[in-house]
Computed example of a mutant assay.
Amino acid sequence: MGDLKDPRLMYLKAALFLVAGCASVTGILVEFPSVRVAALLGIGIWSFCRLYYFAFYVIEKYIDPSYKFAGLGSFIAYLFRKKLR
Rank of each mutant, 00 (worst) to 15 (best):
D3A: 15
D3T: 05
L4N: 00
K5I: 08
R8V: 08
L9S: 03
L9N: 12
Y11M: 14
Y11F: 10
L12I: 09
L12W: 08
K13M: 13
K13A: 14
A14G: 10
A15D: 04
A15F: 10
L16Q: 14
L16T: 10
V19G: 01
A20C: 10
A20P: 10
A20E: 11
C22P: 05
C22V: 14
C22Q: 06
A23E: 09
S24M: 15
S24N: 08
V25E: 11
T26K: 13
T26A: 15
G27V: 03
L29N: 08
P33K: 02
V35L: 15
A38M: 06
L41V: 06
G44S: 15
G44Y: 09
I45Y: 13
I45T: 13
I45A: 11
F48N: 11
L51G: 05
L51H: 07
L51Q: 07
L51P: 02
Y52T: 11
Y53N: 11
F54P: 03
F56V: 10
V58T: 12
V58P: 00
I59V: 14
E60Y: 05
E60W: 03
K61S: 14
Y62T: 06
P65N: 06
P65S: 00
P65L: 07
K68F: 08
F69S: 14
F69A: 14
F69G: 15
A70T: 14
G71A: 04
G71C: 06
L72K: 09
G73D: 13
G73H: 07
G73V: 04
A77E: 07
Y78W: 02
Y78S: 03
Y78V: 01
Y78I: 04
L79M: 15
L79S: 08
F80G: 05
K82C: 11
R85L: 09
